[in-house]
Design a binder for these strands. Structure first.
Lengths: 290, 290
DNA sequence: GAGGGTCCATCAGTGTTGCTTATAGCAGGT
DNA sequence: ACCTGCTATAAGCAACACTGATGGACCCTC
């Protein structure tokens, strides 16, 4: 199965048109038609209907495999080039917003003090994007955060042989409105909040809570952003509860944070990297992991 | 990056010889030489030294990516073909030995009763092999087991879009010799067994215990087999402790099983499958998951 | 030192592949 | 009926991938 044909297939399926895919890929319609025919002949299956150009069930299944496969191919190339590259001082660090907490920021500052020539560009994005950027060589290092049991690795998308190192863990709190009946408690258990209204957020996916505790945790509102200020305002206004790292609630915040006692969970930050030959990136990774 | 060239590269590296790789792949030495040159030109790197033919650091990095990549390509092909295939009654079920406990076996028997034409071949192998066989289409369904927190999915190798369903969970016990000082306890905590001697086994990798509890758990002996009878004899003879599902210790066994109270862990069995069009395999999967 | 064997690199020749251009057929709209 | 847009197919040609031959390097034996 040729990745070249796979790329063509994915592009055609996205556009629903041979001609449009040809334009995007810089081929003629005829070449595209022949490439799709070759892929279909190789597998002995019809992968796309014609008029309209839509994937068959088998084609849909192949599409599910194609994107991760093509990403992994890009990752392999990037990682090999990285393993052989000369050290650079200008680095890109991809991070989820909440991954750069005070501990991590302090270590970053220490790294800058130790390496005067270090030049770091910090890019924030979602957890999946962090993994992809590092894998594809678009970022030198990644920082990803999430909810996990203590010392339990985060579940990141697998993009090939990549190293993850846990670098920070912090207690979680349940963020409640200040006037919530449970706001005065010393600690809370998730099992007692099963029927409360919750916010669906990237940090606190409700499916994860259901995995840990069981059914419940209705999503009253979904917030796909990462801005803590907005999140706290949504909580304070009564839209729903969420879990946050304790340091994310400054004194005087609109919402109140009550420590989570059960199940035993933490906000965990992990460093991601591929090949790490000696140089600035390796030094930065070491300092961030210290 | 062409998978064809990758396959050649992997084969040459394995043999340490262009000529031997040529013989295995059915090409001439000249073709192999040109393929490796093409791959090196594509990446702009020397991947293999010559005389002796050994991977460079960059080549070694590429080898780490190559095997999973090639497996995923095979998996994509197999899964697409499976999605489009006609239903068959002759199925292959790949399972780790301890995954087929009494609950699972009973469900399998129920499936056979419900589908008189069902013909299942059960193949036992290691956890990684289960995932690979299912991914590559060599098995229709897989059953894998391991130690996990309740409701926490097992960590299986990622071979592409595959579905895993937890189908059984069972308490774990610490297997001790009958005359062990702790054998009479009602329950045990792992933290109290940190300095005991342990067996390194596929089911109970000591690295996992260290992740959960911390340093310790010295490996007194490694047993790579899966035979519970042998394992119990090793325990009874004082070679070391291990964790086993409670049902694995029959009455009168040579070793004694004491329930594990902390941390909260279970023996978990999961069903693995790729594309599952309507038919015997889908019916079997449904019955096994019930 | 001479001779022989093994192994990889490179060249020339040849069949295969992958692209472009041209054309045919189909569907939908006016 | 005519026009437009779209995909399939055929023919032509450059590029690619393989084989067979050859050269050079290295090692071993006499």
């Amino acid at each position: 199965m040729d990745p070249h044909l796979l790329t063509t297939f994915v592009t055609v399926a996205r556009h629903g048109s041979f001609s449009a895919a040809a334009a995007e890929l810089g081929y003629t319609q005829s070449a595209i038609s022949q490439q799709i025919a070759a892929l279909e002949a190789d597998l002995g299956l019809v992968l796309l209907g014609r008029r309209p150009v839509e994937p068959t069930p088998a084609g849909r299944r192949l599409l599910e495999h194609a994107e991760p496969l093509l990403l992994r191919l890009r990752a392999a190339r990037a990682d090999v080039l990285r393993a052989a590259a000369l050290p650079r001082h200008r680095l890109r660090l991809a991070a989820t917003p909440l991954a750069v907490n005070a501990v991590v920021a302090a270590r970053l500052a220490r790294a800058r003090a130790q390496q005067p020539r270090l030049d770091v560009t910090l890019v924030t994005c979602g957890r999946e994007q962090v993994a992809a950027l590092v894998a594809e060589g678009e970022a030198d290092l990644g920082l990803a955060d999430g909810i996990a049991a203590p010392s339990d690795p985060l579940r990141l998308p697998d993009t090939g042989p990549m190293t993850t190192v846990g670098i920070a863990e912090e207690d979680l709190v349940v963020a409640l409105p200040g006037d919530h009946p449970l706001a005065g408690r010393a600690a809370l258990r998730l099992a007692d909040l099963v029927d409360a209204r919750w916010l669906q957020t990237p940090l606190c996916p409700l499916a994860r809570l259901r995995d840990l505790v069981g059914d419940g945790f209705p999503a009253a509102l979904e917030y796909q952003g990462d801005d803590v200020h907005t999140l706290l305002n949504l909580v304070a206004a009564g839209h729903g509860l969420t879990l946050l790292p304790s340091s994310a609630l400054p004194a005087g915040a609109a919402a109140r944070g009550v420590p989570l006692a059960s199940p035993r969970l933490v906000h965990r930050v992990e460093l991601l990297h591929g090949a790490l030959p000696p140089g600035s990136a390796a030094d930065l990774a070491r300092t961030l992991s210290a």
